[in-house]
């Protein structure tokens, strides 16, 4: 038999190799599955939805006394809700939308200056000029829409549902958050779990799209842009109200977000 002529060593190598040839590309399988889930979500939920009455939340929690109590409490402080797609970018997208909307009422020019300058800071930190400029240009295009008289709420909803703009805004905000973390790396290092440097954390958890946000992302972004955010937490906790956290701590809130485990939406105060 032919096999008898092969040295034992060689035979085991060959066997191993042929198994490898059949080794399934697991990455492709996992990618395919997550693509299917993403498609289901993207077919049914807009990137940024229309304004809804705050009481729509009550219908979602029929029979759930803890949540119902918290919805009632929210309704005493907020009139409306705007949902965003739960794709891991919801914090950054909600933040971006609510921020631009708030600029109708606030000093637009001072924010535009911060936004313009943000690029130089990122370049100093060593971000690649070529790709950074692409995101910054697109971001500024959206920011500058606010100063045009014909821009209204519908324009913003339309732009934020156009992936070419919406995702670029998300990317750029992620880069700003990353830049802030790296600039104050000594401070933020204390809040990073595991044996990761701030730089590694940024590369793994902040810059990639679709990575969910934590407190540290919110603190970094709100600090970098000098924009106060109030997050209302709605969870199973004992309290009868949806507890508020302000970021950065001492800054009056310019935008309001609702957090339910794993997801952020936009809130509108009464």
């Amino acid at each position: 038999m032919a096999d008898d002529n092969i040295e034992p060593d060689q035979a085991s190598f060959d066997k191993g190799y042929s198994e490898d040839a059949n080794q399934v590309n697991q990455d492709d399988l996992i990618l395919q599955q997550s693509k299917n889930i993403e498609k289901e979500i993207s077919d049914s939920i807009m990137l940024v939805g229309d304004k809804e009455d705050i009481m729509v939340l009550e219908q979602q929690y029929i029979g759930d006394e803890v949540y119902k109590g918290k919805v009632k409490d929210l309704a005493r402080k907020y009139s409306n809700l705007r949902r965003t797609r739960p794709d891991g970018n919801c914090f950054f997208r909600s933040f971006g939308f609510a921020l631009l909307e708030s600029l109708y009422h606030l000093e637009f020019n001072s924010f535009r200056l911060i936004a313009e300058k943000s690029k130089d800071k990122l370049l100093e930190l060593g971000f690649q000029k070529f790709t950074l400029e692409d995101f910054h240009d697109q971001f500024m295009e959206v920011v500058n829409l606010i100063s045009k008289p014909e821009t209204n709420e519908d324009t913003l909803v339309e732009v934020f549902n156009n992936k070419d703009y919406s995702d670029y805004v998300v990317v750029y905000l992620r880069l700003i958050a990353s830049g802030q973390l790296q600039q104050d790396a000594d401070f933020y290092q204390n809040f990073i779990e595991g044996n990761r440097t701030v730089f590694e954390f940024c590369r793994q958890e902040v810059e990639p799209m679709f990575k969910e946000s934590d407190h540290i992302h919110i603190i970094a972004l709100s600090t970098a842009l000098d924009v106060g955010v109030r997050v209302r937490y709605m969870d199973r906790g004992d309290s009868t109200e949806a507890i508020a956290h302000d970021f950065p701590e001492d800054k009056p809130p310019q935008i309001h977000l609702l957090y339910r485990p794993g997801h952020y939406d936009i809130l509108y105060p009464l």
């Binding site: 990455d27 880069l175 810059e207 799209m209």
Partner: peptide, 13 residues
């Protein structure tokens, strides 16, 4: 090319 992709990478990178 998977979970640590960053949009700042280009084809060169």
């Amino acid at each position: 090319l998977q979970n640590r992709w960053s949009p700042t990478y280009d084809v060169s990178a």
